[in-house]
Amino acid sequence: MDKAALASALGSPGTFGQSQFAFMRGNAFEAKVKADGGKELLRLLGIDDPAGALVPDLAAAGPEGRAARTALALREATAAGAWTLLDHPLLALDVAGSPAYVEPDAVVVGPDGRWTVVEIKSFPMIDASADSSKVGAAARQAAVYVLALERVAAVTDAAQVAPGILLVCPKDFSNLPTASVVDVRKQLSVTRRQLARLTRVEDIAAALPEGVTFDLEACSADELTAAVESVPHAYAPDCLAACELAFHCRDRARQAGAVQTLGRSVRGELGGLTTVGGVLAAARGEAGDPADPAVAALRRAAALRAEALAGTAGVPEAGVCR
């Protein structure tokens, strides 16, 4: 589904898209890293004076064909016992009962049968450190690749998947590549459990009311809004950076007066109170059970805040006021 188009049709387009400058630089950097039979890449893997790797052709028809071709190339490379660079291999993974295909930037097969996922990113590593949220996102992404590779490795002789992935980035302010091995064991265990817990896609579809459709051509904005409303969702401000529909959801959440529009953490001290009106009424003593600790704390907070702002009973500074 094209969520950006859906968001536009709902009247809440977000600010997504990529600058062509960033796009061009990203592509050029990846090409540079993989040039010359991956010599640079092998050097980053710690091979002195690499002669270059085998680069098998992975082209095939359709995702299934490409995934099968990748699996075959992995087996051949492992059997060959020579450095092999798989450029944009395609791997299959079972997600909620449906096959999903994922495409790492590269996988390197070593002579010892070790498979290493390579992620090439265009954010810089400056003095051997990089933006931790970007590295975190890369690690979670790579963990999915490692998981998909493990499936193939399980049926390949003498193959093992390295738990450390090679993250390649521009060094400092140059376009020279540098790399760091990122241990993704944590992300792997999380991904495994998430996949195991994911509701099956059919179950989500089955839970929808009958006749719900997201057909952009055929539906009016109102019909689309109703359709989107019928899917369970929980807006939080973090969504804004991640989802094209977030502005639409935010709009809805604000109309409903949901307190989490102010941030997930806001709810921590509010207990069962979930709306702006409800919290303020409780704070002003117009509603709520005073025995509820959340209500009691709110009333104290409101009284202290009012006292400080009124400045009359307040104390000009933590000292004496006669």
Binding site: G136, A137, K186, S189, V190
Partner: peptide, 26 residues
């Protein structure tokens, strides 16, 4: 826990010593 998937930032060069809090809680 499912609503709060682990999105921990990762610092380069820091040794992983311990399981993820999200995973251990599960």
């Amino acid at each position: 826990l499912d609503e709060h998937p682990s999105t921990e930032p990762v610092q380069l060069g820091v040794t992983v010593k311990f399981p993820d809090g999200w995973e251990a809680n599960h």
